[in-house]
């Protein structure tokens, strides 16, 4: 029942231009811009001021546009810009649109039951986000592969065994902002306000939480300075581990450790001074997935509870 409703919702969503445009921006335009930049850099490096060591600079530029690099860049940096907005758009589409077109009175008529319809919509949201994320990733990798084949001829090597699972896990973390978007779309009539709420509410609340914790610290004096410093360190290391924003984007540390590892030659080795902060680990990745899962469960529970009691009057 629920998968059938989700498929019906997805079939409907394919008529929405906005999702195709998003897919084109994320999966085609974003990698194309990187390829074009890399191409012009490699063309103009030779003999120019940028060409300090010749081969190294050219290597970096070429390697920035391989299939692996584009795939890695997108999951780390590229998608970071889009994660909250696309979740907000998808959540708003599946819930807010029903209000706009007065469709609740049609789709919430006794059969199928209300819970199935709402869970079907949530599942459809996850599926649509997965299509957008995985589709864009595939676009980035394909364009990188073709560009490399045509222009750069650099090896398409990289840690594919980490990159591919990251894409799939990323589809799980977006369930949290999706559930938040659906909840806010149900609460706020104006679509623009619910979109903004989904994008801005998590960082605002997290900022307020951090500020309130800091304000509760004792004033620093000669006696407690060391303890206060430890408390602060603990605050900035531990508290964000429970925030939605900091756990949402899984690829950041993967890309960072990959770049830092490139600079220091041996990622994870003791001679890497940024290792403790930027090292990628599956343990941290699964932690992030878990935290986002808890947020998703809370938002979804509130969303469902609200709708199960709600009278459809519009």
């Amino acid at each position: 029942m629920i998968p059938r409703i989700a498929l019906a919702e997805l079939r409907k969503a394919r008529f929405k231009k906005r999702f195709w445009i998003l897919l084109i921006i994320m999966g085609v335009l974003t990698p194309l811009v990187q390829v074009i930049i890399a191409y012009f850099v490699t063309q103009n490096l030779s003999g120019g001021q940028l060409d300090q060591g010749g081969a190294i600079s050219k290597d970096i530029a070429e390697n920035a546009a391989t299939a692996f690099s584009l795939g890695r860049n997108f999951i780390s940096v590229g998608i970071a810009i889009f994660l909250l907005p696309i979740s907000a758009m998808v959540g708003n589409y599946f819930i807010g649109e029903e209000r706009g077109f007065k469709m609740w009175k049609v789709i919430l008529v006794s059969q199928p039951n209300r819970l199935n319809v709402l869970l079907g919509k949530f599942l459809a949201g996850i599926m649509l986000l997965a299509i957008l994320i995985l589709g864009s990733g595939l676009g980035n990798i394909t364009i990188g592969f073709l560009a490399n084949l045509a222009f750069f001829h650099a090896p398409n090597t990289g840690d594919w065994g980490t990159l591919i699972p990251l894409y799939f896990l990323q589809c799980l973390t977006v369930t949290a902002p999706l559930a938040l978007a659906m909840l806010l779309s149900s609460l706020i009539a104006a679509p623009a306000m619910s979109l903004l709420g989904t994008i801005l509410l998590p960082p605002i609340l997290e900022g307020i939480t951090t500020a309130s914790i800091i304000s509760q610290l004792d004033k620093i004096n000669v006696v407690n300075a060391a303890f206060q410093a430890l408390k602060l360190k603990n605050l900035f290391e531990q508290v964000p581990r429970y925030y939605l924003s900091t756990n949402l984007n899984l690829g950041t540390s993967f890309a960072a450790s990959s770049v830092v590892g490139g600079i220091f030659g041996n990622r994870g080795a003791a001679n890497n001074p940024l290792n403790s902060i930027l090292e990628f680990s599956w343990q941290n990745t699964w932690w992030s997935v878990g935290v986002c899962g808890v947020y998703a469960a809370i938002f979804l529970a509130v969303f469902l509870a609200m709708w199960m009691r709600r009278d459809v009057l519009d």
């Binding site: 609740w104 009175k105 008529v109 009278d311 459809v312 009057l313």
Partner: peptide, 9 residues
């Protein structure tokens, strides 16, 4: 009618 249709409790 909305109550019969299950839209209103």
């Amino acid at each position: 009618m909305r109550m019969i249709a299950g839209l209103i409790r």
